[in-house]
Design a binder for these strands. Structure first.
Lengths: 119, 119
DNA sequence: TTATCGTCTGAGTATGTGCTCATATGTTAA
DNA sequence: TTAACATATGAGCACATACTCAGACGATAA
């Protein structure tokens, strides 16, 4: 059994020093949760389509529903999630709400994600 | 009712030109699915902790289980998902498998995600 | 005011998912 | 070979979630 590393534990192959080092990478619990929620929000095919659609031009709920082929209610539910996480923002023009990406981070995340899957 | 945009539809507030433009942002279905799966994989708190832990040094399943406080089985299940999406890679040393991040994209995604939530 | 339209929200439901447990696989040492 | 250990995998269950439907809310126009 290889115990080549001097920091290996005696009982099993556990490396206390590595675990200590790993614990330094921990985020604050709220930050960790927020970061996971950000990726989770982008990890749904419908929401990802919305983000891609908004990456070039703002659109209203009607547009998005017609584009995605789902009800406006479903779009609204998803937009709520994206709004709460500051992935999208909106602008009112009369009764119509126009949604857009909130900042540049979203497009950058998508670009890097695409780089990864195309590697 | 505002129909300020010349491309607004008559029936409702639907903008055909915007929808046409949005459809140009569509990815190939397999790519779209892969991209969503990538973000979905990073959107679970357990898997995100694993990725953060591996961001500085490789670790074996034992290490990760001890670090996360969950069973090795649970870790193995999550590592399988991360492996299949090429988020992590492993290296065998005797009976022990050491896991590491597969490439630089993962760290960059995490960094940009952190920028976003800290904005 | 009322009527209409765009959007939002709560309830209900079907599907997805992350864990535990038990077992299988694969490697090393005796 | 057998035994021990590290890891992987399948089944089952509890919980999360994305949709539809029905109705509410908010803005505009008559």
């Amino acid at each position: 059994m290889p115990k080549t590393n001097e920091d290996a534990c005696l009982c099993r192959v556990i490396h206390p020093k590595r675990i200590e080092k790993a614990s330094q990478t921990c985020l604050q619990p709220e930050e960790h949760e927020k970061l996971a929620n950000l990726f989770k929000a982008m990890g749904d095919t419908t929401r990802l389509k919305i983000l891609l659609a908004l990456s070039h031009e703002e659109m209203c709920v009607c547009d998005l529903a017609a584009f995605l082929g789902i009800t406006e209610s479903a779009v609204s539910h998803q937009l709520r999630i994206l709004r709460q996480l500051y992935l999208v923002a909106n602008r009112r023009e009369g009764p119509v709400l126009y949604y857009r990406l909130n900042d540049e981070h979203i497009s950058r995340l998508i670009d890097i994600g695409l780089e990864h899957i195309r590697e």
